[in-house]
């Protein structure tokens, strides 16, 4: 099994807003779950959190592009997150996630040494990285977390790999140094121009295509609107484009159909048939509307979370996050 990443290095480079609360708050519930230790956690930006989770059964077999579903506690939602990195021998996986709603905020409240109620995976079909040729990997927003291991796998499989990442402003950037380590070229785009190029990832991509650069495969992951426009840019050039879809999911094993998408006129389940699909064949409008199907409930959940938030439980008095 492939080992990806260089850990001690990464840790040094991550933001230092570390939780110093250790092993005090093991929330062992009554459940039969086998409980997964949160070996470490860090805030990588104000919006994103990195978790290192003890999950030997996942680490042993996972590949780039696959994901896990985790649950913070026995009242929690099942949250799909791409496996960012893993170590077979030490038996852990990492994920990086953005705090966007109640469940991801709740996850972010967990401290080093806590337990996750559940962690199942690897799920989904690994990204096909063999013989991709010259690749451009695009990650937008939280998609950077997913783009990183995929780009690394492309590179390790012997492909020339350029990476474009895009965020609103430079405060939201992460993984930059790691990507630089392996990528042939890294382009950063920010909406406000606070770092790299001002503009969207699609501006950068179009420029590369028009400059006559040889590109065989484009892989994109991020907000669906971004992926839709990446597909629009590459379509006239007949450029093979893969999008990694972050649909709503429940079980992640093909049992519910919450994750269904229309691809080339056929219904597919993103969790078992994907998450990677031909971006030119995906019904983007439908994908976007299905993702926003729970807007009101998400708001309600967030309000409930804020009202009942306990924050980190391992504190000595007055040291809540």
């Amino acid at each position: 099994m492939m080992y990806i990443g260089n850990y001690s290095n990464k840790e040094e480079k991550l933001e230092k807003i570390t939780h110093n609360c250790t092993y005090l708050s093991r929330k062992i519930s009554e459940s039969e779950s086998n409980m997964f230790t949160l070996i470490d956690r860090k805030d990588v930006t104000a919006e994103s959190v990195w978790f290192k989770i003890e999950a030997p059964d996942v680490a042993r077999v996972c590949k780039a592009g696959q994901f896990v579903i985790i649950r913070a506690n026995d009242k929690g939602e099942r949250i799909p997150l791409t496996i960012a990195d893993w170590d077979v021998n030490e038996g852990w996986v990492t994920v990086i996630f953005q705090k966007v709603g109640a469940s991801t905020y709740e996850l972010a409240d967990l401290c080093k040494g806590d337990y996750l109620q559940d962690c199942v995976g690897p799920l989904g079909i690994p990204t096909y990285v063999e013989n991709a040729g010259n690749t451009v990997v695009i990650g937008g927003g939280l998609g950077i977390a997913i783009a990183t291991p995929v780009a690394r796998a492309y590179k390790q499989a012997g492909n020339h790999t350029d990476v474009i990442i895009g965020v609103r402003n430079k405060e939201l950037l992460f993984n930059v140094e790691e990507i630089r380590e392996f990528a042939d070229e890294l382009y950063i785009c920010t909406d406000d121009g606070s770092e790299g190029r001002q503009g969207f990832v699609t501006d950068q991509l179009l420029e590369m295509i028009e400059s006559g650069q040889q590109i065989d495969t484009v892989f994109c992951v991020g907000p669906p609107i971004m992926m839709k426009f990446v597909a629009k840019v590459t379509e006239p050039f007949n450029l093979k484009t893969i999008a990694s879809l972050n649909t709503i999911m429940l079980d992640g094993t093909g049992m519910c159909g919450a994750c269904r998408v229309t691809v080339g006129g056929e219904t597919k389940f993103a969790c078992v048939d994907g998450p990677d699909f031909d971006a030119h064949l995906v019904e983007w409008e439908e994908t976007m509307s299905r993702l926003s199907g729970y807007k009101e409930e998400e708001k309600e959940a967030m309000e409930h979370y804020q009202k009942h938030r306990k924050g980190c439980q391992c504190n000595k008095e007055g040291e809540q996050k």
Partner: peptide, 17 residues
């Protein structure tokens, strides 16, 4: 599954809508 396994009928105490 939302209702039974994930107790969606107790949303938002249980987080699955």
């Amino acid at each position: 599954t939302r209702v039974n396994l994930l107790k969606g009928y107790k949303f938002p105490e249980y987080k699955t809508p």
